[in-house]
Design a protein around this nucleic acid. Structure first.
Length: 271
DNA sequence: AATGGTCGCAACCGCGAGGGG
DNA sequence: ACCCCTCGCGGTTGCGACCAT
């Protein structure tokens, strides 16, 4: 009983994607938009299953993805949200629109989990901050209250998102609101990034640069906002608003005198 | 310089939810 | 109401890169 896994089919390629495959996939999505993943392998001729195509797009090729190191802000948000939502990475990712759920999940599993674990041993000053942070998030305010606040925040974020996405309100530098934002499609490579695929990614970047300049709806919309309007993750590309809202929200938390969220100087600046 | 161990990330797998027929 | 299909999510794995010895 039950359907066979789509990837069990013979002749379905697995493993790392090649630049050529990426280009084929990107080109197809450029023409047809994301969605209807079932049709993608047949229409593109890719020997990949639909799932693999979707994953590749959402986790790697999709415009607006920020790669590389997580900022302290992002780290804190993840910790807070993980405490609130648990391992609901997709939900957490919706608050960090430039990051994919896979990225966040990986970062949590490889870095943050370790930090928190270390902090439980109590021998790492930096990690104690995380401990305090986690403690405060879960203890100072009853969970139900946190959840209500989260719901409210989600509503506010949605509203703000609608406003932000209305073309007349988009500033020309909409997509560059974050000066440290290293757009994955910029031609400059970020130092310290993974390199095994860097050159290939650059190839894709050039390709995308080309087609993103194509006037699909280029006027005042940023490429992200343009491309992503019909995408499965509509939040993407509108990073500024929900991000700042959450930031404010976290700031409110930090403003309680008895608790210092980020106790370092850097933290104080950021928060 | 070589080798073994560890880490980090991309990708895969299985399951559940939602929608259409 | 039921079944089937597609999509999305979360957990896990495999492999290449990096580091220590």
């Amino acid at each position: 009983m039950g359907r066979p896994p789509c990837c069990d089919k013979e002749g379905v390629k697995k493993g790392p994607w090649t630049p050529e495959e990426d280009i084929i996939l990107v080109t197809y999505i450029q023409e047809h938009g994301p969605g209807n993943w079932r049709a993608v392998p047949t229409k593109t001729g890719l020997s990949r299953c639909s799932k693999s195509c979707r994953l590749r797009w959402t986790n790697y090729l999709r415009p607006g993805i920020k790669r590389g190191n997580f900022t302290e802000q992002e780290e804190k948000m993840i910790i807070h949200l993980q405490d609130l939502l648990g391992n609901r990475w997709a939900a957490i990712a919706s608050y960090l629109p430039q990051r994919t759920d896979n990225d966040i999940k990986n970062y949590w599993n490889t870095h943050l989990k370790k930090k928190l674990k270390k902090s439980q041993t109590g021998n790492n000053a930096e990690c104690i901050n995380f401990e305090e942070e986690k403690f405060s998030a879960s203890q100072r305010i009853p969970r139900g209250q946190w959840e209500r606040r989260l719901q409210t925040d989600i509503q506010m974020a949605k509203k703000a998102l609608n406003e932000a996405l209305s073309p007349q309100k988009l500033s020309p530098n909409f997509s560059t609101s974050n000066p440290t934002n290293s757009n994955s499609f910029s031609s400059t490579k970020e130092p310290g990034q993974s390199f095994c695929y860097a050159s290939s990614a650059d190839n894709i970047a050039r390709l995308l640069k080309g087609w993103m300049k194509n006037p699909i709806k280029s006027s005042s919309l940023s490429p992200d906002a343009t491309i992503l309007q019909d995408e499965s993750k509509p939040d993407v590309g509108s990073e500024t608003m929900p991000f700042s809202l959450l930031e404010k929200w976290l700031l409110d938390e930090a403003s309680c005198p008895e608790k210092v969220l980020g106790c370092g100087g850097d933290h104080a600046q950021v928060f």
